[in-house]
Design a protein around this nucleic acid. Structure first.
Length: 774
DNA sequence: AAGGGCGCACTTTTGA
DNA sequence: TCAAAAGTGCGC
């Protein structure tokens, strides 16, 4: 029989002693299914340094005791950077050894290993299966013990992909835990889980509470609930770092099996550091939030607010430092418990609002949903490249430690500071991808060293002098072309849909996903961790970019245009439709690229610095770029003052009102009317605390807190306020909730937060510090 | 463990 | 007192 299934998760397993892939999914009838596939024997490729014959290689490898798991060696034709090669396919009985053999054999025999893929990835690649998409397989039903699905099958042939199409209805469960300690962070070794909040997309919201410090029943209730609801997707906020580890340790303590998986297994940490639950997609929504730059402080309430979700105004992330004092008061304890439910609810609605995009990203890259969310951009591109390479018969390079070089980037044009009216912004569309495609920038077309190739056959890149063959199409060109054509096809498909249909929504997110991968290809080429790392490609892309924008500016000046500013692939000019059209035509005809009017400003204000400006758009909205108002490491009071100044300057065109608003804020601050929350400054710990060379305020605060038993780790945002006193800031910085307003050094906020932020703008209008309150 | 790139502004600490 | 270094977070 044939089984058509939506692929949710894939991992490794064994069937009758043989390694196999396990595909977890949902069939057309909505049944949750498992398919065991044992068709592919784990393998990798090996290209010997010198040509060798198969029989001698086969006997050599199979007789070597170190390689006891080698089953067979066969010969195949593959390509290495476009060049045909005869390679050995080394088949292994144990999938766990593919990676180590792939490295070890070339070391001993001489040569190079390729395609060190894990078995699930091997299947996804060889069969071109679509994660979060529909696939099909010839199967027969089987019985497997301990597996919680509606149907288990054995594949009798290789599975294959059908289409992306619209996902089926999935079951989502959101959860959060609450733990409290009298002193410091809650410790799973001693502090029980006080409550677990759960919300599901069927509308249920539950709170499992612990009484008398005995959380065993709470844990059991949660485990039961998950088993009964049988979610396809489990979400939480900071679940990877906080909630799962806590539950895992509590269960260990209480000797209770945290059987979350569809094979009754417990959560385990997997690639990209995420927590994996077999047969389901376990997602940490903070991974999603980390990709949304508008969300400055990554909390569930801020993320929910970003998605404009109703529950966002009630839910809050309770700071660990406050938790105990809330817990010990009856009234506030109720609030804390209520909030635990609200957090779960908010996680659920955020997941529902946001899930389409990661699903499509998963479908495009081939990474399972849980992995694609936690994987950094480079790994998403890596996955896409692997699939493309395999399709065209290319060998897949192994990841190895690469020496890494920096190179020159883009140009930024010094702005004409001050106010400008009626300004248009011209942007090149996908500048780097376009240039990479146009000049065939790729490792396989790169002419190495001083190899002689006649001038007509190569593109010579300005400034850096790298040469790339015009033909044949390089790997990067093939990949970029596939991405760009894919995107165009999606856009065409969208035209056939009404904009409120489910299909349209899915296509829109798919288009976003393709765009994201397209734009990441340049950065990927320059990333030392990439399988296809080629510094020359990235270096050439930026060199061509510099040439492109420079030439365009020269042409614009010839046309009599006034260049106000430019950065990388954009130029800001006076809005003169005729001249702009002339320039657009010239870019098309002479550079073979596309430039478009991306935005228009009624009024725009440039500081003397690059990358910092603000403007009133023709659509009535204000845009802030690079200024304090968009930076997460300034206090709210500084950001608010600057925003007010900008509103007065850009909208009301009143410098007087701007000055007054600043002075008013200074007075309010001095009168003690500004709450500490607005004086809080947050900075991220960007490295392990012991590696800091300097006593920065946030680092010192983190150190103090760690000493008192609070968990502080790399990536945490540390909040502090500055207290009165003398000496360096780092001695006066304290966590906000340890400080009373009377202790706060208000003058620090006047002199080092409000005034700099306000004067950054006001000074451009000829206002000096003397006009502000002393 | 840490998981595209480089260019730039700006604050605070450091060290002479 | 001053310049350099460290550190953060932005723009594209």
């Amino acid at each position: 029989m044939k089984c058509r299934f939506f692929l949710l998760d894939v991992n490794e397993g064994r069937w009758e002693g043989k390694p196999c892939a396990r595909f977890w999914g949902i069939d057309e009838e909505g049944k949750r299914i498992l398919i065991m596939a044992g068709q592919i024997t784990p393998y990798f490729y090996f290209l010997p340094a010198a040509p060798a014959d198969r029989d001698s290689m086969r006997s050599r490898l199979m007789q070597d005791k170190k390689f006891g798991m080698v089953l067979d060696v066969t010969v195949e034709h593959r390509k290495l950077l476009g060049k045909d090669e005869v390679v050995f396919k080394v088949l292994c009985s144990d999938p766990a050894l593919v990676s180590s053999y792939c490295k070890a054999i070339p070391k001993i025999v001489g040569g190079q290993g390729f395609d060190d893929l894990r078995l699930p990835v091997r299947y996804m690649t060889d069969c071109r299966l679509t994660a979060c998409g529909w696939n099909e397989c010839e199967v027969e039903p089987i019985e497997i013990e301990g597996v919680r699905v509606d149907g288990a099958y054995l594949a009798t042939a290789l599975p294959y992909s059908l289409s992306h199409d619209v996902p089926p209805k999935v079951r989502i469960l959101a959860f959060t835990t609450l733990a409290v300690a009298e002193k410091g962070s809650a410790k799973p070794e001693v502090d029980p889980v006080r409550a677990i909040g759960v919300a599901t997309d069927s509308g249920e919201v539950e709170l499992f509470r612990t009484s008398a410090d005995d959380d065993l029943t709470t844990l059991k209730a949660f485990i039961d609930y998950v088993e009964k609801y049988d979610p396809d997707i489990i979400v939480g906020f900071e679940s990877t770092r906080l909630h799962w580890p806590y539950l895992i340790k509590r269960c260990k303590q209480r000797k209770e099996a945290l059987t979350m998986g569809r094979d009754s297994s417990e959560p385990h940490s997997s690639v990209f550091g995420h927590v994996s639950i077999i047969g389901r997609a376990n997602l940490d929504l903070s991974d999603l939030a980390s990709g949304i730059f508008e969300v400055k402080v990554k909390t569930i309430e801020n993320t929910a607010t970003f998605f404009q979700l109703p529950s966002s105004d009630k839910v809050r992330t309770v700071d660990e430092l406050n938790r105990y004092s809330l817990w010990t008061k009856d009234e506030e304890r109720r609030g804390l418990l209520e909030n635990t439910k609200l957090v779960a609810k908010a996680c659920l609605v955020v997941a529902q609002a946001a899930i389409d995009y990661p699903m499509q990203l998963s479908a495009i890259t081939g990474l399972p949903l849980d992995q694609v969310i936690s994987a950094a951009v480079g790994f998403r591109v890596d996955s896409y490249f692997i699939r493309q390479a395999h399709q065209i018969g290319e060998l897949i390079p192994t990841k190895n430690e690469q020496p890494f070089f920096t190179y020159q980037g883009a140009v930024v044009i010094e702005p004409e500071s001050g106010t400008h009216e009626n300004v248009a912004v011209l942007d090149f569309t996908s500048m780097y991808p376009s240039l990479m495609r146009k000049y065939n920038l790729s490792p396989d077309t790169l002419v190495k060293g001083d190899e002689k190739v006649s001038a007509g056959l190569v593109y010579v890149i300005p400034q850096v002098g790298h040469r790339f063959r015009k033909e044949p199409d390089g790997f990067y060109r093939i990949v970029l072309t596939s991405l760009i054509e894919n995107r165009e096809a999606i856009k065409r498909e969208m035209e056939n849909q009404t904009s409120d249909s489910t299909t349209y929504k899915v296509l829109k997110e798919r288009e976003r996903a393709v765009k994201m991968i397209t734009n990441a290809c340049y950065g990927y080429a320059g990333w030392a961790g990439a399988r296809w790392y080629v510094r020359e490609v990235a270096e050439s892309a930026t060199a061509l970019g510099r040439e492109t924008i420079t030439k365009t500016i020269e042409k614009a000046k010839l046309l009599g245009m006034n260049i106000i500013y430019g950065d990388t692939d954009s130029i800001f000019v006076t809005n003169d439709a005729h001249k702009i059209n002339q320039l657009i035509d010239w870019v098309d005809s002479d550079l073979g690229l596309e430039i478009r009017v991306e935005r228009r400003y009624v009024r725009i204000l440039f500081t003397e610095a690059m990358k910092r400006y603000a403007g009133l758009r023709t659509d009535g909205g204000l845009g802030f770029v690079g200024l304090e108002v968009v930076r997460g490491d300034w206090s709210d009071i500084a950001r608010e003052v600057q925003e007010e100044v900008l509103v007065h300057v850009l909208k009301d065109q009143s410098t007087r009102m701007a000055i007054e608003s600043v002075n008013e804020m200074i007075q309010r601050l001095r009168r003690g009317e500004v709450p500490i929350a607005k004086l809080t400054i947050r900075k991220t710990l960007t490295k392990p605390i012991e590696k800091y060379a300097v006593r920065a305020p946030h680092v010192e605060v983190a150190r103090q807190m760690m000493k008192e038993g609070w968990d502080m780790t790399l990536g945490d945002k540390v909040a502090y306020v500055v207290r009165k006193g003398s000496g360096p800031l780092y001695k006066r910085a304290k966590p906000p909730n340890r400080v009373r307003l009377e202790e706060v050094d208000l003058e620090y906020y006047v002199d080092n937060q409000i005034k700099p932020a306000a004067l950054r703008i006001l000074e451009l209008l000829g206002v000096d510090e003397g006009r502000l309150l002393a």
